[in-house]
Design a protein around this nucleic acid. Structure first.
Lengths: 261, 261
DNA sequence: CCCCTAATTCCACTTAGTGGAAATGGCTCG
DNA sequence: CGAGCCATTTCCACTAAGTGGAATTAGGGG
């Protein structure tokens, strides 16, 4: 059986690099510092291997040592690479300004996200606040794909094969409310196909609507609008949905017309 | 001479991982996409090696393929790691809110940065704007260490050995105005030692002052304040310097008192 | 001061990675 | 529409680079 053999000759990639990236990924909001021991535990790799890889990451400037607790922390380099990513994103570059304007005009939150494995990650999330001076722009935050309008819009935008692969992962993840949850996800996907958007109230008193943005040769994105401190109501959802559809149409028009690189 | 031999047995780290990181670093604002060829050129590595490493980075979710131009782009994962970095930064967590407040109170830009090799990278840069609704917060942007108040404050905050190492690199970089520039840098460092801050007008009509923040067990940071659209004047510089010193003192007090992790 | 825990270095083994050469695949121009 | 020309990917023999268990060292607490 020609199961592509991992790591010999190189058709599958590079093991050490893959492991090193996995180490970086082990840091997430909530785990500020990690020691070699914890990393070894999480990754299941021998401690000596981790020791060498973390040393390399320190030398490359991706990790800072925290001597006091014999641990590591993500270094500032990672945000400069993150900044380069945002700077180079053709979608964000094209519609970022429009998103800000729309947030101000409609007085609600506007966000753009795409997938990172089974999470959605915001390229930009503009939090509208009546006290405009406190308006907040966040990038890089992750939200679960299966629970959010953003994630479900994304699922509606990608191909069936990839979608089924992801749904299988969600089933594995939350053994609990699986049946209901998956049905709910599929309902949202149908909603996108029917209405152009889906509405989800993931967090209490937050109503969000989202729609996919599918462009040739680029990852699938999702655009959302949301409002805090509201009761979920169908009327509100369809009002926001209409705004979102209109805005997304405008974005797609601009994106289609942008200079091909 | 026992020059530590690179890459055998492993005391020096892992070559493939180092190379992979270097590939990620090759993307920067201005170079949105890179093909294997260009990467090979920039890094001096054989194309086959690059081909394998970029494949791995795609599989790990750090790069997206751009089929149309047979090239790669940084993927969204990098900003989620960047977000984790900011989230986990004890300094930013402690004084971020204070920085925002100070920017509003003093009506000027406030920034926090640290070094990434020979550049300073903003953990947060709060751009004050009279039209408060347009206020902008940026993270990850890089500015040259030797030309900015931020960088010179940083140089004043680190140890002599590291400082001299960096100064040597600057000399190599800009063969031109080297003599004057280096003298200027040293003057700024003395200013920090004397006044607590240094003032630099790197970009036309922007006046900036900065001061180092040195904490045990953490990288050295630099805090700055700046104003656009002003004539450089000593009076203004010392006014801003006074504000900065006062604010930095407040920050240091809070930072000293924070729960040790 | 000495023990105990955890990280790091050592080292023999061998697999995983390397890079030159060949093959493939896309694109352009005739 | 086909031939030639890039650039990129795959192949493959070679071997050095990486691995991970065992020994060692370094911290931190009692």
């Amino acid at each position: 059986m020609a199961q592509a053999r991992r790591y010999a000759g190189g058709v599958d990639g590079n093991r050490s690099l893959e492991r090193g990236i996995e180490i970086l990924r082990a840091f997430r909001p909530g785990v500020d510092t990690l020691g070699n021991g914890e990393i070894a535990e999480r990754t299941g790799l021998p401690r000596s291997t981790i020791s060498r890889l973390t040393r390399t990451l320190v030398n490359s400037g991706m990790l800072d040592e925290v001597h006091a607790e014999r641990a590591y922390r993500l270094a500032a380099s990672v945000i400069s690479i993150g900044h380069a990513m945002r700077t180079g994103s053709p979608v964000l570059n094209t519609i970022g300004a429009m998103m800000r304007a729309e947030s101000a005009k409609r007085r609600l939150n506007v966000g753009l996200a795409t997938a990172d494995r089974t999470m959605m990650v915001y390229l930009e999330s503009i939090r509208y606040s009546p006290r405009a001076a406190l308006r907040n722009v966040v990038a890089g935050q992750q939200v679960p794909m299966e629970l959010t309008s953003l994630g479900r819009a994304y699922l509606a935008g990608i191909g069936t094969a990839e979608r089924e692969r992801l749904l299988k992962l969600f089933r594995r993840r939350s053994a609990a409310a699986t049946k209901t949850l998956l049905a709910d996800v599929r309902r949202s996907i149908s909603a996108v196909e029917r209405d152009g958007y889906c509405a989800v109230s993931w967090q209490p008193a937050v109503l969000a609507v989202a729609t996919p943005i599918v462009l040739d040769g680029l990852p699938v994105y999702a655009l959302n609008m949301s409002l805090q401190n509201v009761e979920r109501s169908d009327a509100l959802a369809s009002e926001m949905g209409a705004y979102l559809n209109a805005f997304a149409a405008k974005c797609k028009a601009v994106l289609a017309g942008r200079e091909p690189e």
